[in-house]
């Protein structure tokens, strides 16, 4: 029973973390402070914050709720590494193409 009480406590902590992260995201999304919104590296700092917080949320959902932390290490890796590798590759190639399309087509649009 002791272990179960522990795992229940962890669930509530994770709920708290996910709620706080969502609240922070929404708060920043509404406030959009200029210093974060209009400056950045590649994309705005604000976007970086959103992406990192999203990955943090994804980590907690997959590890705590979907219980990846309790699975065998190489089973977990067969899932996570596959997804991370393929998605990074896809995003890299597709987003660069999007930027190229903009550079090529935008000069042709008359506003």
């Amino acid at each position: 029973m002791g272990a179960h009480a522990e795992s229940n406590k962890r669930i509530w902590i994770v709920l708290g973390i996910l709620t706080v992260i969502t609240a922070v995201e929404v708060g920043l999304g509404i406030a959009k402070p200029d210093s974060l919104h209009l400056n950045g590296f590649g994309t705005s700092w604000l976007n970086w914050i959103f992406i990192i917080l999203t990955l943090a949320k994804a980590y907690y959902i997959a590890w705590a709720f979907m219980h990846l932390e309790g699975e065998k290490k190489w089973f977990r890796r067969s899932l996570v590494w596959t997804a991370v590798f393929l998605i990074s590759y896809l995003l890299f190639i597709v987003l660069f193409e999007g930027g190229y399309l903009y550079e090529t087509l935008a000069p042709l649009i008359k506003w």
């Binding site: 596959t82 997804a83 998605i87 597709v94 903009y102 935008a106």
Partner: peptide, 24 residues
Amino acid sequence: ILSDALTFSGFLAAYGLTRFKFID
């Protein structure tokens, strides 16, 4: 779930491409 995650990434990546294409 892994394969479905890749499907959703495909959609979101396509969204990203289109958004970069019309970034302005």
